[in-house]
Design a protein around this nucleic acid. Structure first.
Lengths: 195, 195
DNA sequence: CCAAACTTTCAGTAATTACTGAATAAACCA
DNA sequence: TGGTTTATTCAGTAATTACTGAAAGTTTGG
């Protein structure tokens, strides 16, 4: 009995150092890497202006092959039902995850878009809608209201508004065009232009 | 006397409706538009993940031809010295504004980069450095640590990490290349590609 | 129509982030 | 050097944002 325990302890110690020799270690690498990815993605999220939890849920779903229920997300990330619910629905609103209904199951499941290019184009479109378009409205308004200004200051302001508006419109249209491309063509263009 | 007052009142009323007839109205349009721009830019800023005050200061300096001192910024935006100081220095750190020293004056003045394309390339470079590069590090690490995983889940995770890393590197290098262009060439490329 | 399963909302609270104002430090000048 | 101007820091506080947990709402199957 004591010998068995010793063997188990030895086995556990060894497994900390062996990377390729047996299955438990691989499993463990995966689980740890997954948890690290979720944690790091959450931290990064805050620097992109999205909440930690939302980024974590997105990360979790991106690396989970099967759709997950709200309860599974809650359990995995140790968050409340309300929090999980709100953020899942926000992610659906962004189009980054979708609702899956399984037959025979009453609850909703969620799965992330896993294709990286598709995810990118979704973010592009949403940011255009949420960030660039409101800016264009502001700039257009400020430009229009100072069109007839005669003072040097007024003219300079009007010019600056017009420059900003032009650029915002350009960025908006570029975003739109890029989002229409699929991965292959996009790479071709990039390769051609920046060869 | 009463007649004078009546005339003044009439004049003031009229001036609310006349847009091009006299100088005070233009001046006023400009001041109001400027204040609206600063307020709106501040509000937009929060949706881009930067603080309201920082966006407001940037907006103010973008539309002010002459360099401003900390005190002028404080007064214009009704903010404290500490707040103004910290945000001005952060903007300098981003490279979006620069410090100007006037001869004979001991205090520092600040002026914004007003060229829209230059501002854009600065933001591109900084976001690459602050947002994409840390992400690449995380992805690279997670990918390396699961290289030898044998399970289906582990392999799927590893693939996803690699895809994300590849894309992040691609985005990083595109950002770099775009930031190297100046406005003219950038427009030419855009026109050629998306004609 | 009821009860169970599940979803949504939201008031209260926690955590985070931003700001103030005053003290301290640094730079400069006579 | 001491006095003056300007810059910086930071403890305390305010404002904002995120989260919880429970109650209310909805849908579905019997």
């Amino acid at each position: 009995m004591v010998l068995n325990i010793l063997i188990v302890i030895l086995f556990l110690r060894l497994s900390e150092f062996s990377v390729t020799s047996e299955s438990m270690s691989n499993e463990d690498d995966f689980t740890k890497a997954k948890d690290d990815f979720i944690a790091s993605w959450g931290a990064l999220g805050t620097s992109w202006g999205i909440s930690r939890t939302m980024a974590q849920i997105h990360a979790l779903l991106m690396v989970t092959p099967d759709p997950m229920s709200t309860d599974e997300v809650m359990e995995e990330l140790h968050i409340s039902r309300g929090n999980a619910h709100t953020n899942l629905k926000d992610l659906v609103g962004w189009g980054l995850i979708r609702i899956i209904v399984k037959k025979g199951e009453r609850k909703e499941f969620f799965e992330a878009e896993k294709d990286v290019w598709k995810t990118f184009t979704i973010v592009l479109k949403e940011r255009k809608r949420r960030e660039i378009e409101p800016a264009i409205n502001v700039l257009q308004d400020c430009s229009a209201r100072t069109k007839n200004c005669k003072t040097v200051e007024g003219k300079a302001f009007n010019d600056q508004m017009k420059d900003l508006e032009d650029f915002a419109r350009f960025a908006s249209s570029m975003g739109e065009k890029i989002a229409l491309l699929s991965y292959g063509p996009a790479m071709k263009i990039a390769a051609k232009v920046f060869r």
